[in-house]
Design a protein around this nucleic acid. Structure first.
Lengths: 146, 146
DNA sequence: CTCATACCGTTGTTTATGCAACTAATACAA
DNA sequence: TTGTATTAGTTGCATAAACAACGGTATGAG
């Protein structure tokens, strides 16, 4: 099926995902300006811990779509910055549970405010209906490739 | 304006661009399987040289949405792999013009075939009309942030 | 219990990005 | 012409991703 033929420009844009790169850069910039001292990748880990603290690294892999080495190193850096702490699981000694520190918890409010603002900047002037449609397409793409 | 409030899940998906990450990973995998020996980032440079050979690094920055250090290093690696060659511009001695080698030219056909196939995999089952709409949204996002 | 197997996390290597600082060459205004 | 600003490209440093290989722990079959 699907004998789409793409014009070269289209192909390039889709594959390189310049929109999401632009969002990432803007978010990083906005974090910096707001004094939120973290990278967007570290934020993506914190984001899930704020939703539910004390997850294993494996759970964080699944949630963030990252592989295990990536999460290991992000947690390394978060620990270095004293935003999270590794705690060995007593039930299963293979597992590290990751907990927010007080400082890590304190960061949530400001960081989420910045993230929301960034997304509003990105989607300014785009009708909600179109946003939903685009989201659907991106989800489908993701499902096609997973 | 634009007092959108986003649900947390929406926010995360949009910002992290998991669809474009998935496309990139699949393209890399498909390159490998097809024996196309290059990274997707290097491919993005080659892509523009195939369209028009002998561009300056600055032109490649603009075309690929990358900053200058990134392009410098991608060209370094492409040169190391003997796919391109730097040639000093005689008119303006600040400028490097980047030319494909024979080997770099030979790669075009297979690489573009793989890229097209990858995009077909990604967009399988998505109606052309929706693709166009999504593209529009992503373009708007990019314009909002540039 | 023991052994094969699966799972969780870590480490090493290569490649790439963002940012800031820097050099060399050019353009332009006084 | 001289001095300043701009432009092209490079380098250093910190962070991150993909992939492969590895060690420690748990689990289940015999």
């Amino acid at each position: 099926m699907s004998d789409n033929q793409f014009k070269r420009g289209e192909l390039y844009s889709f594959i390189t995902g310049k929109a999401s790169v632009a969002i990432a850069r803007r978010l990083q910039k906005n974090f910096k300006e707001a004094g939120v001292d973290t990278t967007i990748e570290q934020w993506s880990i914190l984001y899930h811990l704020w939703k539910e603290d004390g997850r294993s690294q494996q759970q964080l892999c699944d949630a963030t779509f990252r592989d295990k080495p990536s999460v290991t190193r992000l947690v390394d850096n978060l620990e270095k910055n004293k935003l999270v702490k590794r705690v060995g699981d007593k039930k299963d000694r293979r597992v590290n549970l990751i907990f927010l520190t007080t400082e890590g918890k304190k960061m949530e409010e400001e960081a989420m405010k910045v993230a929301n603002r960034t997304l509003n900047e990105a989607l300014a002037g785009v009708p909600k209906k179109q946003i939903d449609l685009a989201k659907e397409v991106l989800q489908k793409v993701y499902d096609n490739l997973r």
